[in-house]
Computed example of a mutant assay.
Amino acid sequence: MTHRDVVFPPGRQALYERNRYSPAIRSNGFLFVSGQVGSREDGSPEPDLTRQVRLAFSNLNAILAEAGGSFDDVIDVTVFIVDPQTRFEQIWSVVQEFWGEAPHPTVTAVGVTWLYGFDFEIKVIAKLPEADKD
């Protein structure tokens, strides 16, 4: 088995170890980030939808920063939304705060019925800056 180059955000390693998955894996100049939700420090969901989306981005940005990147390095995004018909506009207005300038990454939005108590999840693939120097 290949050794996985795992990236842990500061202060959250125990949460990931308890749930038995890696927050992100660095491979061949890319960073593959697990779905990030608006979880508080203890892993519980933030109940306010707007704050939950902002917290999901904060959690995502902590992982990207730990790997030496930022959202500007993201090339592909997948978002999962519970009940997108009623929540999409509210969520998407918050997303724009973090999206940055064009050109934007590719995006796939998926409506789901359950996210373990959360309403929004974001999963990304980024090309890390040091990989551009090759």
Rank of each mutant, 00 (worst) to 15 (best):
M1F: 07
I122T: 04
L15F: 13
E101M: 10
Y116V: 11
S39P: 05
F57K: 08
K133E: 14
V79D: 15
R87N: 13
F8H: 14
M1I: 05
G43P: 02
V95C: 10
R40Y: 07
E89N: 10
E101R: 13
F57L: 10
H104W: 11
A67K: 00
D5R: 14
P84S: 10
L115W: 04
S27R: 14
Y116T: 13
R26L: 04
A126T: 01
I81G: 04
E130V: 09
V74D: 00
T106S: 15
I81L: 11
E97C: 06
S27L: 11
D42C: 01
G35S: 09
A14N: 09
Q52Y: 02
G69N: 03
V6Q: 09
Y16Q: 03
K127Q: 13
R4Q: 14
L64G: 00
D76L: 08
G35R: 15
V110S: 07
P47W: 03
W92K: 08
F71V: 01
D5W: 11
N59P: 03
I91K: 10
T108N: 12
P105R: 04
F71N: 02
V6N: 05
D42Y: 04
G100A: 05
L64N: 01
L15A: 12
G111W: 04
I81F: 01
T113A: 10
G35V: 10
N61D: 12
I125L: 12
I91N: 08
E121C: 12
S39R: 12
V112G: 02
Y16V: 04
P9T: 09
S39F: 12
